[in-house]
Computed example of a mutant assay.
Amino acid sequence: MLVVIDMQGRLLAHLDGGERLADRVGTLLRAASLLDVPVVVTEQNPDGLGGTADGLAAHARSARTIQKHTFDATLEPTFVEALPPAPATLWVAGAEAHVCVLLTVLGLLRLGYRVEWVADAVASRRAADRDVALERARQDGAKLTTVETAIFGWLGSYRHPRFREALALVK
């Protein structure tokens, strides 16, 4: 399952590398749709920050969207109910790396999930905050990965019937 944290337009504009983040998360969402990987999207305080950015929302149509008011999404019962049973592997991306993404990753690890943190698909307002969050998550047991590694992992083989379509997403 792909977990996309708080990719809201009002937030993205303030992030270091927000445009690139939207591009990388968009690629993950397109690949997840293509390869039938289930997706959960969170929105932090949507009344204040708005919904998922328009360009991303189009790729997340089949995703389950969870509105949250906690920084750690695992404190929202509807979020936990949307997840497969632990110890499933969850790929996590989104914003902000050092707040909602990190706290959710730590919560997922506490619940027994295997977490693949998609390192090139997270951002914070300051690059240093992102870097510290990635290191903290790694120290606590999350595995760091990239968008391309996640997609090729979902494919499993070049013999996958959708290989060429997925390859086109990363070229």
Rank of each mutant, 00 (worst) to 15 (best):
A57M: 09
R64G: 05
V37F: 02
D23H: 13
R130S: 09
A127M: 11
V170E: 05
L155P: 03
F163L: 03
W154D: 01
R30Q: 11
L106G: 08
A133Y: 07
K143E: 14
V147D: 01
L102N: 11
H69Y: 13
R125E: 10
P77V: 02
P38R: 02
G153R: 12
T78Y: 02
S124H: 06
V39R: 04
V41G: 04
C100S: 14
R10C: 03
T27F: 09
D6A: 12
L144E: 08
D131K: 10
T149M: 05
A82L: 07
E148L: 02
V92R: 05
L83A: 04
A150L: 04
G26P: 13
D6M: 15
V39Q: 03
T78P: 04
I66W: 01
E19Q: 14
H59M: 10
G51R: 09
P84Y: 11
F152H: 05
H59Y: 12
G141K: 07
D120I: 04
V92A: 05
P87G: 06
A57Y: 08
A168Y: 06
V99D: 03
P77M: 03
T104N: 01
V92H: 07
L106M: 13
M7P: 13
R20D: 15
R130H: 06
A121V: 09
A150F: 01
A123W: 07
D36C: 02
A22V: 14
F79L: 05
G112C: 11
G55E: 06
L83G: 05
L83F: 08
A119G: 07
R20F: 11
R64F: 02
R30F: 01
Q139G: 01
A60G: 12
E76M: 10
